[in-house]
């Protein structure tokens, strides 16, 4: 069952649903999420990644997504977008003073201002990240995949945004570009032994851009 506005409010007030800072308004069945400071916008430094890959004898833009260490990759290759005046024509995302411009085809990561989720102990809800239809009509996709905030997790959400439209999209801090809906789960996860395969089970050495 999805929570409607009154139940969303009650869940926040009781601490069973975490939304910090608490929302100024709540929709009929959703809560808007807003972009954090422009300084939180990030893009992949594909020039550096390409250079490192070429040094290793790999295709310049190769990334073995299931075998990379994301933490290490993010430390090395996630960077703020270049300022517009310093950018090149091939830069799809640029910073312009207090905003970011995402050109057609551009891809950007940007965390939400809100910390969202559920408490670790006895979580009763699961949340889904979604875009907003009016923004989507411009071509803005705000969450490519994995929209689920699983029970027991909370944090700032990192939005994976891409511009699929023909326009240059301008994004600012506090722009409401996403929303969450909340559903009640049957029971809190038990996390019993044996239900979780190790992430390194059967994994061979990392290949591709190892960073």
């Amino acid at each position: 069952m999805y929570l409607s506005d009154g139940d969303l409010q009650a869940a926040i007030e009781s601490g069973r649903l975490i939304v910090k800072p608490p929302p100024a308004t709540i929709g009929p069945t959703s809560i808007d999420l807003h972009l954090d400071s422009v300084d939180q916008a990030r893009i992949w430094d594909i020039r550096k990644l390409a250079g490192d890959n070429i040094e290793r004898g790999l295709h310049e833009l190769q990334m073995n997504i299931a075998r990379m260490n994301y933490g290490k990759m993010s430390r090395k290759y996630l960077v703020p977008p270049p300022h517009e005046k310093d950018s090149q024509d091939t830069d799809m995302v640029v910073r312009r003073d207090d905003c970011v411009v995402v050109r057609p085809g551009g891809f950007i990561l940007w965390q939400t201002k809100e910390i969202v989720g559920t408490p670790e102990d006895n979580p009763r809800f699961i949340c889904f990240i979604d875009g907003k239809s009016t923004r989507a009509r411009t071509g803005l996709v705000v969450h490519l995949t994995a929209p689920t905030i699983h029970a027991g997790w909370s944090g700032n959400v990192t939005l994976e945004m891409t511009n699929c439209g023909p326009l240059h999209l301008v994004l600012h801090e506090d722009d409401a570009v996403a929303q969450i809906t909340v559903a009640q789960i049957t029971n809190p996860p038990k996390l019993d032994v044996g239900q979780h395969e190790s992430a390194t089970h059967g994994q061979s050495d990392v290949t591709g851009a190892q960073a």
Partner: peptide, 21 residues
């Protein structure tokens, strides 16, 4: 981390391989 709301953590797994998340 690249984002102010998170950290990058690094450990060695049981078989000695590095893991960063």
């Amino acid at each position: 981390s690249a984002f102010s709301g998170e950290v990058v953590f690094a450990v060695k797994t049981l078989d000695g391989k590095p893991y960063e998340g």
